[in-house]
Amino acid sequence: MLAVRLRSTKKGKIRFASHRDIAKVWERTLRISNIPLMYSQGFSPRPKISYGLALPTGAESDCEYIDLQVDDSNRESINVEEICTSLNDNLPPGILINGASVMNGKFPSLQQTVTSCIWDITVNEDDTKVDSWVDRINNENTIVLRRERKGKEVVDDIKPQVHLVRKNYERIDGRVTLQAELGTQPRSLRPSELLRSMEPCLTEHKLRRRKQIVEEGARRLDPLEVAGATPMRSLIGAS
């Protein structure tokens, strides 16, 4: 068995496909590309694929991760670059693998390992409104968010999850764009939740996940660079 972690984009029209839709796309693309996977045992065997943190439907991303367990029992060697090339030929437009690592030994799942995400949040409001909103988010000691979970209203202080919020220099579609780093443990703070956590709320025009980060001690790593991962240098930086 060969464990492989892939990083890919989700850009353009495909951003409207849901997390579940994309999971199915991966399963089919892996079959089409003839990549043998390990299967679970039991009554209805499933291919061993595990998906990273869900991306909200409609958001774009530079950094979606997926872990595969490739069945290498019938082959002398499996070339990860070749796997990526063949998957890239068959994935729908907008999804492109731009990084891969071979994972050695035991390693925690993507859901467990990622500690925060960096987002570009393009909003509909003008500079004045956004500036004052950002100031208040950064200066308040607590940010109270009411949200529904399993049919019950839950009130949380999300301040510890808000690692960074600042205005980007770059505008997107002529609109103000925020950069925000939001924590993902024990559960993710969503950009939409951040925007409505402080009145008057900001409204989302476009959303893009720029980075997922794993904090290992003092180091901030890409999930492709965690302990035990051997990154395929040739793939990194492919656009």
Binding site: K13, F16, A17, S18, D21, N90, H205
Partner: peptide
């Protein structure tokens, strides 16, 4: 008409029905 509907799709149910891109 994609540029005109792109942002509208954030406000509808199951927007993937309107994007094409099927294999």
């Amino acid at each position: 008409i994609w540029p005109e509907i792109e942002h509208l799709l954030l406000n509808v149910e199951k927007p993937a029905r309107y994007i094409g891109l099927e294999r």
